[in-house]
C-alpha cells in the first residue's frame, strides 16, 4: 500500500515538473535566441507578465483560450518591438531598457487589471486540459509523466530541438550567432545588423509572451498581480547555468521546475516544514547555481554591448 502511494507521489511530482517547466522553457529558449544575437533582454519577466495578463483578459472576454494564446504571443511581440527599438535602434543600455520594461509592465498590468474588474466579481475562465497522446500515454510511468500533458507543453519541449536546429543547422542561425560574437563581421559583408537583432528580439519576446500565456491558461483560472513571480528571472538564470546551449538550458529549467514541483507536493506529503521554505527552493537553487558557475564560458562575447560602427 505504502509503496503504491509513494510511486503515485513520485509520478505526480515528475508530471508536475514537466508542466511547471513549460512557461519557463518557452521564455528561456526564446531569450536564448535573443541573447545569441547579442541582446540582453532583461525584460523577460515583464514580457511574460504582459503575456499572462493579456491572455487572461482575452480568455475571459472571448471565452476562447486559443484566441487568448494568440493574443499573449501578440502582446509579447509588441513588448519585443519596444525592446528592439530601444536596444537595436536607439542603442540604449540593455539593462536599463529591461528594468524600465519590467517596471512599466508591472505597474501597467495592475492598473489595467483594476480597470478591467472594476465593480464586478473577478471573471474566471476554463483553462487547458490534458491531452494524452494516443499509445504513448499508456506507457507505464512515462506515459503519465511525459505524454499526458497540455498541448502547449508538447510544443515547448519540441521548441528545444527546433531552436537548436535553427541556431546550428541553418545559415540564418550562423548569422545570428555571429551577431552575438562580433556583429562587425556581418556589417562588413553588408548585412543589416539591426534587422537581424529585431528578428531575434521578436522571436524571444513572442515565445516569452506565449510562456506567460500558458502560465495563465495552464495553471489557474484567474489573474493575480505579478503572477509570474520571478519565472522570467529564472529563465535568464537557466540560460547562464545552461551556458547558452539549448540542452543546458533545458536541463537547468528542469532542475528549477523539479524543485518547485517538490515544493507544491510537500503539503500533500504532510512534511512538517512550512511549505513557503520549499517554494523558495528554485530561487535559492538559482543563486547557488550562479555562485558555482564562476566562469561564464559560453557567453556570447558581445552580449549586452550595443553595436556602433
Amino acid at each position: 500500500m505504502g509503496d503504491l502511494f509513494q510511486e503515485a507521489i513520485l509520478v505526480s511530482i515528475l508530471a508536475g515538473t514537466v508542466r511547471i517547466m513549460t512557461p519557463i522553457l518557452f521564455a528561456a529558449i526564446g531569450e536564448l535566441v535573443t541573447q545569441r544575437a547579442g541582446i540582453w533582454n532583461m525584460g523577460v519577466e515583464g514580457t511574460m507578465l504582459m503575456g499572462a495578463f493579456i491572455a487572461y483578459v482575452v480568455a475571459t472576454a472571448t471565452g476562447s483560450i486559443w484566441i487568448a494564446v494568440l493574443a499573449a504571443m501578440l502582446a509579447g511581440g509588441v513588448v519585443g518591438l519596444l525592446t528592439a527599438f530601444m536596444t537595436a535602434t536607439m542603442r540604449v543600455d540593455h539593462f536599463i531598457t529591461g528594468l524600465g520594461i519590467n517596471l512599466l509592465i508591472s505597474g501597467l498590468t495592475l492598473y489595467w487589471f483594476r480597470i478591467y474588474i472594476k465593480g464586478r466579481a473577478q471573471p474566471t475562465f476554463e483553462g487547458f486540459e490534458n491531452v494524452p497522446i494516443p499509445v504513448l500515454s499508456s506507457i507505464p510511468y512515462l506515459g503519465e509523466i511525459l505524454f499526458t500533458q497540455r498541448i502547449l507543453t508538447y510544443v515547448a519541449f519540441l521548441s528545444v530541438p527546433a531552436i537548436w536546429f535553427l541556431l546550428y543547422r541553418t545559415r540564418w542561425g550562423l548569422e545570428l550567432r555571429c551577431l552575438g560574437e562580433n556583429p562587425k563581421a556581418l556589417d562588413i559583408k553588408g548585412l543589416s545588423v539591426v534587422r537581424r537583432q529585431y528578428t531575434a528580439v521578436l522571436i524571444g519576446s513572442i515565445m516569452t509572451g506565449l510562456g506567460g500565456g500558458f502560465l495563465m491558461l495552464g495553471f489557474s483560472d484567474r489573474f493575480l498581480a505579478d503572477i509570474t513571480a520571478g519565472r522570467g528571472w529564472l529563465a535568464i538564470v537557466a540560460i547562464i547555468a545552461g551556458r547558452w546551449m539549448p540542452r543546458g538550458v533545458l536541463a537547468a529549467v528542469a532542475v528549477f521546475a523539479l524543485l518547485e514541483s517538490v515544493a507544491t507536493h510537500v503539503q500533500v506529503l504532510g512534511v512538517d516544514i512550512p511549505h513557503q521554505i520549499f517554494l523558495a527552493l528554485p530561487y535559492v537553487a538559482s543563486i547557488v547555481l550562479l555562485m558555482m558557475l564562476r566562469s561564464k564560458s559560453g557567453e556570447p562575447r558581445r552580449l549586452g554591448i550595443p553595436y556602433f560602427r
Binding site: L174, E175, R177, C178, E181, N182, A185, K189, L191, R301
Partner: peptide, 13 residues
C-alpha cells in the same frame, strides 16, 4: 569570430 571555425568565419554572411 573567435568561437567559429575557420570555415564558418569564411562563409558567414
Amino acid at each position: 569570430v573567435a568561437e567559429f571555425s575557420v570555415l564558418e568565419n569564411i562563409v558567414v554572411g
